[in-house]
Amino acid sequence: MSLRHVEVGGTAPYRITIGRGLLRDGNLLAQSLRGRHVLVVSDANVAPLYAQAVVDALRAARPDLRIATHVMPAGEREKTLSRFGEAVDALAALGATRDACVYALGGGVVGDLAGFAAACWMRGIDCVQLPTTLLAMVDSSVGGKTAIDLPQGKNLVGAFHPPVAVVADTDALRTLPARELRAGLAEVVKYGAIVDASFLDWLAARADALLGGDGDALVDAIARSCVHKAAIVERDPFERGERALLNFGHTFGHAIETAQDYGTLNHGESVAVGMVLAARLSSALGLATDTDAMILQALLQRFGLPTALPTGLDPDVLLAHMRLDKKAQASGLRFVLWEGLGRARVVADVPGDAVRDILGST
């Protein structure tokens, strides 16, 4: 299997490298280093598997490095101000200078929190994203969004801070639980839903291979997803327009995650439900047909993903979370909806009653 590269352009360009065995490639990992201080941030699930290999590879390539490892507890509930403070304390203990680099080794939680620590330390140091989940490889590691959660909502405190490199080692997916692989496929499906209907057909034809962990199929899916995200991020790095399309399903999904205190559905599963709800809302508002919503729902179900709200969630509580969502505006609720497969759009001032009807009918 050969390496795949995706270039992210714009004012802060960087390369996404996708392939096997990359976490042991010290020359690749050290390629973007400017200084001698390195902090590897990981979590309690991932660090035992890969942290030492990354440290050893970096030391082999650059014996002069001062490297520290910071391991945080695993899980979305740990993406907090206090855990962020611990990562910053680790940078202070290392004596990290302005040319230091943070390596974010893990899934989306680690990537978001470590990236935010890098954004804040001395007003911004380098960060290399080393995603170890499919979801992080195709979404959170690309584009420079970093953040932590508050009790009031997800990703409310953060910064745009593009990485200097993304290295996606697909060997890490071999240790990924099946549920987490399916969660990542939700974000892969999203790219087809918003900009590339033909990608949905490609995914449907390769569902068995992807679910079975076929290396070539996964590399192709990751690369194709990253190409779509890179193109959008390059055109709209600070989410002032087109980049909002990447949030298809996320307004519903983040509300679900917050309302259940990150305890039932994980992020990818919540987004899968959110995409179906967004498609149904689009139909209710006369923007799209029910047929396209059913095609999307069937594909998500084919990947073993949930497509209905968990029982017991109060529609009014979900609506309250949506009103605090970053995509909301003072004038009212704002959603990424669609006009059918591959044709997403941002719709402002969506009536709360229409949203409540969708929430109450699942």
Rank of each mutant, 00 (worst) to 15 (best):
T11P: 01
I18D: 04
G19A: 11
R20C: 14
G21K: 08
L22S: 04
N45M: 08
N45T: 07
N45C: 09
P48C: 04
P48G: 07
L58T: 09
R59G: 05
R59V: 15
T69L: 15
R77E: 06
V102F: 04
V102K: 01
G107M: 02
V109Q: 03
A114E: 02
M122W: 07
I125Y: 02
D126V: 14
V128T: 13
T133A: 04
A136K: 02
Q152K: 07
V164R: 10
V164Y: 05
V167E: 01
D169Y: 12
A172P: 06
R179M: 11
L185G: 04
A186P: 03
A193D: 01
V195P: 00
D196E: 12
A197K: 09
F199G: 03
A205D: 12
A205S: 14
A207K: 10
L211C: 10
G215L: 11
D220L: 14
A230V: 12
V233W: 00
T258R: 08
T258N: 12
V271E: 00
A272Q: 00
S283N: 07
A284R: 14
L287W: 03
T291D: 11
R302S: 11
P306H: 08
P306M: 12
L313H: 08
L324R: 08
D325H: 05
A330Q: 13
G332F: 12
R334T: 15
W338R: 08
G342N: 06
A344W: 00
D353N: 11
V355L: 07
T362L: 09
